[in-house]
Amino acid sequence: MIKVSNLKKSFGDLEVLKDINVEINQKEVVVVIGPSGSGKSTFLRCLNKLEETTSGTILLDNINLTDKKININKVRQNIGMIFQQFNLFPHKTVLENIIIAPMKIRKKSRQEAEGMAYNLLEKLGLVEKAEAYPDSLSGGQKQRIAIARALAMEPKVMLFDEPTSALDPEMVGEVLNVMKELAKDGMTMVVVTHEMGFAREVGDRVIFMDEGYIIEEASPTQLFSKPQHERTKTFLSKIL
Protein backbone atom coordinates (compact mmCIF):
# COMPACT_ATOMS: atom_id res chain seq x y z
CA MET A 1 0.00 0.00 0.00
CA ILE A 2 2.84 2.36 0.88
CA LYS A 3 6.23 1.86 -0.67
CA VAL A 4 9.12 4.07 0.39
CA SER A 5 12.32 3.89 -1.66
CA ASN A 6 15.65 5.59 -0.99
CA LEU A 7 13.94 8.34 1.00
CA LYS A 8 16.27 11.10 2.12
CA LYS A 9 15.47 14.26 4.02
CA SER A 10 17.76 17.08 5.08
CA PHE A 11 17.10 20.20 7.11
CA GLY A 12 19.80 22.47 5.74
CA ASP A 13 23.08 20.68 6.34
CA LEU A 14 21.55 18.20 8.74
CA GLU A 15 20.60 14.93 7.10
CA VAL A 16 17.79 13.48 9.19
CA LEU A 17 16.72 10.60 6.96
CA LYS A 18 19.61 8.97 5.17
CA ASP A 19 18.21 6.09 3.16
CA ILE A 20 14.83 4.74 4.08
CA ASN A 21 13.36 1.77 2.27
CA VAL A 22 10.21 0.20 3.59
CA GLU A 23 6.90 -1.24 2.50
CA ILE A 24 3.69 -1.06 4.44
CA ASN A 25 0.91 -3.43 3.48
CA GLN A 26 -2.80 -2.95 3.71
CA LYS A 27 -4.28 -3.61 7.17
CA GLU A 28 -0.82 -3.80 8.63
CA VAL A 29 0.10 -2.08 11.91
CA VAL A 30 3.69 -0.90 11.74
CA VAL A 31 5.24 0.49 14.88
CA VAL A 32 8.29 2.73 14.57
CA ILE A 33 10.59 2.94 17.57
CA GLY A 34 13.97 4.49 18.17
CA PRO A 35 15.84 7.04 20.27
CA SER A 36 14.89 10.70 20.00
CA GLY A 37 16.53 12.36 17.02
CA SER A 38 16.55 9.10 15.11
CA GLY A 39 14.28 10.59 12.42
CA LYS A 40 11.17 8.53 13.15
CA SER A 41 8.82 11.52 13.41
CA THR A 42 10.33 13.09 10.30
CA PHE A 43 9.83 9.80 8.48
CA LEU A 44 6.18 9.75 9.48
CA ARG A 45 5.68 13.39 8.47
CA CYS A 46 7.19 12.66 5.05
CA LEU A 47 4.46 10.09 4.48
CA ASN A 48 1.83 12.83 4.16
CA LYS A 49 4.22 15.48 2.89
CA LEU A 50 4.09 17.65 5.99
CA GLU A 51 7.82 17.57 5.33
CA GLU A 52 9.15 18.05 1.83
CA THR A 53 11.36 15.11 0.94
CA THR A 54 14.87 15.75 -0.34
CA SER A 55 15.08 12.70 -2.59
CA GLY A 56 13.63 9.25 -3.05
CA THR A 57 10.05 8.20 -3.72
CA ILE A 58 6.97 7.45 -1.65
CA LEU A 59 4.24 5.51 -3.40
CA LEU A 60 0.78 5.41 -1.88
CA ASP A 61 -1.50 3.12 -3.87
CA ASN A 62 0.83 3.79 -6.81
CA ILE A 63 0.57 7.54 -6.53
CA ASN A 64 4.01 9.06 -6.22
CA LEU A 65 3.82 11.60 -3.39
CA THR A 66 7.19 13.08 -4.29
CA ASP A 67 5.87 14.05 -7.72
CA LYS A 68 5.40 17.84 -7.62
CA LYS A 69 2.42 17.65 -9.97
CA ILE A 70 0.13 15.58 -7.79
CA ASN A 71 -2.60 17.28 -5.81
CA ILE A 72 -1.30 16.73 -2.31
CA ASN A 73 -4.57 17.90 -0.73
CA LYS A 74 -6.39 15.07 -2.45
CA VAL A 75 -3.82 12.56 -1.24
CA ARG A 76 -3.94 13.83 2.34
CA GLN A 77 -7.71 13.26 2.46
CA ASN A 78 -6.89 9.56 2.55
CA ILE A 79 -4.19 9.78 5.20
CA GLY A 80 -5.22 10.47 8.77
CA MET A 81 -2.61 12.06 11.00
CA ILE A 82 -2.54 12.14 14.79
CA PHE A 83 -0.18 14.52 16.55
CA GLN A 84 1.52 14.45 19.91
CA GLN A 85 -0.05 17.81 20.78
CA PHE A 86 -3.54 16.82 19.50
CA ASN A 87 -3.88 20.08 17.51
CA LEU A 88 -7.63 20.30 17.89
CA PHE A 89 -9.09 23.58 16.65
CA PRO A 90 -9.67 25.52 19.88
CA HIS A 91 -12.21 27.94 18.38
CA LYS A 92 -14.50 25.13 17.32
CA THR A 93 -16.56 22.71 19.36
CA VAL A 94 -15.79 19.00 19.42
CA LEU A 95 -18.54 18.38 16.89
CA GLU A 96 -17.34 21.20 14.60
CA ASN A 97 -13.79 19.85 14.82
CA ILE A 98 -15.01 16.52 13.49
CA ILE A 99 -17.40 17.72 10.79
CA ILE A 100 -15.43 20.59 9.30
CA ALA A 101 -13.26 18.53 6.95
CA PRO A 102 -16.02 16.14 5.77
CA MET A 103 -18.27 19.15 5.06
CA LYS A 104 -15.73 21.49 3.47
CA ILE A 105 -13.70 18.89 1.59
CA ARG A 106 -15.88 15.84 1.06
CA LYS A 107 -18.85 18.19 0.55
CA LYS A 108 -21.06 16.18 2.84
CA SER A 109 -24.27 17.73 4.11
CA ARG A 110 -24.24 18.91 7.71
CA GLN A 111 -26.76 16.25 8.56
CA GLU A 112 -24.67 13.45 7.12
CA ALA A 113 -21.45 14.73 8.66
CA GLU A 114 -23.05 15.15 12.08
CA GLY A 115 -24.57 11.69 11.90
CA MET A 116 -21.17 10.25 11.24
CA ALA A 117 -19.56 12.37 13.95
CA TYR A 118 -22.08 11.19 16.54
CA ASN A 119 -21.43 7.58 15.54
CA LEU A 120 -17.73 8.10 16.13
CA LEU A 121 -18.34 9.93 19.42
CA GLU A 122 -20.61 7.12 20.55
CA LYS A 123 -17.90 4.55 19.88
CA LEU A 124 -15.48 6.66 21.88
CA GLY A 125 -17.95 7.29 24.68
CA LEU A 126 -17.70 11.04 24.20
CA VAL A 127 -21.16 11.96 22.92
CA GLU A 128 -21.78 14.29 25.86
CA LYS A 129 -18.73 16.34 24.83
CA ALA A 130 -20.08 17.15 21.34
CA GLU A 131 -20.85 20.77 22.18
CA ALA A 132 -17.82 21.31 24.43
CA TYR A 133 -14.75 23.27 23.41
CA PRO A 134 -11.39 21.45 23.35
CA ASP A 135 -10.03 23.56 26.24
CA SER A 136 -12.46 21.89 28.59
CA LEU A 137 -11.32 18.34 27.74
CA SER A 138 -8.63 16.21 29.32
CA GLY A 139 -5.60 15.22 27.28
CA GLY A 140 -6.90 11.71 26.71
CA GLN A 141 -10.27 13.04 25.55
CA LYS A 142 -8.57 15.53 23.24
CA GLN A 143 -6.51 12.81 21.60
CA ARG A 144 -9.54 10.56 21.16
CA ILE A 145 -11.41 13.47 19.54
CA ALA A 146 -8.41 14.05 17.29
CA ILE A 147 -8.65 10.41 16.23
CA ALA A 148 -12.36 10.83 15.56
CA ARG A 149 -11.64 13.95 13.51
CA ALA A 150 -9.18 12.01 11.36
CA LEU A 151 -11.50 9.02 11.02
CA ALA A 152 -14.36 11.24 9.86
CA MET A 153 -12.46 11.62 6.59
CA GLU A 154 -12.53 7.82 6.19
CA PRO A 155 -8.79 7.56 5.57
CA LYS A 156 -7.10 4.51 4.09
CA VAL A 157 -4.17 4.80 6.42
CA MET A 158 -3.61 6.44 9.80
CA LEU A 159 -0.32 7.93 10.95
CA PHE A 160 0.30 8.40 14.68
CA ASP A 161 3.13 10.67 15.78
CA GLU A 162 3.78 9.82 19.43
CA PRO A 163 0.06 9.97 20.22
CA THR A 164 0.45 9.33 23.94
CA SER A 165 3.67 11.20 24.71
CA ALA A 166 1.96 14.38 25.89
CA LEU A 167 -0.56 12.55 28.07
CA ASP A 168 -0.67 12.02 31.81
CA PRO A 169 0.10 8.35 32.51
CA GLU A 170 -3.46 7.51 33.57
CA MET A 171 -4.78 8.67 30.21
CA VAL A 172 -2.45 6.69 28.00
CA GLY A 173 -4.60 3.58 28.25
CA GLU A 174 -7.79 5.13 26.90
CA VAL A 175 -6.01 6.36 23.79
CA LEU A 176 -4.17 3.09 23.21
CA ASN A 177 -7.47 1.21 23.55
CA VAL A 178 -8.99 3.27 20.76
CA MET A 179 -5.96 2.52 18.62
CA LYS A 180 -6.25 -1.18 19.37
CA GLU A 181 -9.88 -1.13 18.29
CA LEU A 182 -8.86 0.61 15.12
CA ALA A 183 -6.23 -2.02 14.39
CA LYS A 184 -8.78 -4.74 15.02
CA ASP A 185 -11.11 -3.11 12.48
CA GLY A 186 -8.38 -3.54 9.89
CA MET A 187 -7.03 0.02 9.65
CA THR A 188 -3.59 0.35 8.12
CA MET A 189 -1.53 2.15 10.74
CA VAL A 190 1.95 3.56 11.11
CA VAL A 191 2.64 4.40 14.74
CA VAL A 192 5.64 6.24 16.14
CA THR A 193 5.59 5.54 19.84
CA HIS A 194 7.51 4.75 23.00
CA GLU A 195 4.77 2.41 24.18
CA MET A 196 6.52 -0.95 23.85
CA GLY A 197 3.54 -2.78 25.30
CA PHE A 198 1.40 -1.47 22.45
CA ALA A 199 4.06 -2.39 19.90
CA ARG A 200 4.23 -5.92 21.24
CA GLU A 201 0.50 -6.42 21.51
CA VAL A 202 -0.82 -4.68 18.41
CA GLY A 203 2.10 -4.30 16.03
CA ASP A 204 2.42 -6.64 13.07
CA ARG A 205 5.88 -5.33 12.51
CA VAL A 206 8.27 -3.17 14.46
CA ILE A 207 10.81 -0.89 12.80
CA PHE A 208 13.80 0.28 14.78
CA MET A 209 15.32 3.52 13.53
CA ASP A 210 18.54 5.21 14.55
CA GLU A 211 20.46 8.14 13.09
CA GLY A 212 18.30 8.34 9.99
CA TYR A 213 18.46 4.67 9.03
CA ILE A 214 16.14 1.74 9.53
CA ILE A 215 18.44 -0.50 11.52
CA GLU A 216 16.16 -3.44 11.92
CA GLU A 217 12.61 -4.50 11.18
CA ALA A 218 10.92 -7.64 12.41
CA SER A 219 7.84 -8.98 14.11
CA PRO A 220 7.47 -7.66 17.66
CA THR A 221 8.29 -11.07 19.19
CA GLN A 222 11.41 -11.37 17.11
CA LEU A 223 12.60 -7.82 17.61
CA PHE A 224 12.01 -7.61 21.33
CA SER A 225 13.28 -11.07 22.24
CA LYS A 226 16.03 -11.61 19.67
CA PRO A 227 17.24 -8.26 18.36
CA GLN A 228 19.87 -8.78 15.70
CA HIS A 229 21.77 -5.52 15.84
CA GLU A 230 23.94 -4.13 18.58
CA ARG A 231 22.21 -0.73 18.46
CA THR A 232 18.77 -2.32 18.79
CA LYS A 233 19.99 -4.28 21.78
CA THR A 234 21.43 -1.16 23.44
CA PHE A 235 18.23 0.80 22.84
CA LEU A 236 15.97 -1.97 24.11
CA SER A 237 18.11 -2.56 27.18
CA LYS A 238 17.68 1.11 28.08
CA ILE A 239 13.92 1.21 27.80
CA LEU A 240 12.70 -2.25 28.74
Binding site: N48, L50, N73, K74, V75, R76, Q77, N78, I79, G80, M81, F83, Q85, N87, L88, F89, I100, A101, K104, I105, A146, R149, A150, M153
Partner: peptide, 17 residues
Protein backbone atom coordinates in the same frame (compact mmCIF):
# COMPACT_ATOMS: atom_id res chain seq x y z
CA UNK B 1 0.51 27.46 16.65
CA UNK B 2 2.07 25.72 13.66
CA UNK B 3 0.26 22.54 14.67
CA UNK B 4 -3.05 24.16 13.73
CA UNK B 5 -1.89 24.56 10.16
CA UNK B 6 -0.47 21.03 10.10
CA UNK B 7 -3.65 19.52 11.49
CA UNK B 8 -5.83 21.30 8.93
CA UNK B 9 -3.54 20.53 6.02
CA UNK B 10 -3.23 16.88 7.03
CA UNK B 11 -7.03 16.61 6.83
CA UNK B 12 -6.68 17.61 3.19
CA UNK B 13 -7.67 21.27 3.52
CA UNK B 14 -6.14 23.64 0.99
CA UNK B 15 -3.95 26.49 2.18
CA UNK B 16 -6.65 29.15 1.58
CA UNK B 17 -9.31 27.08 3.34
Amino acid sequence: DRGQNEAARSLGMTAPL
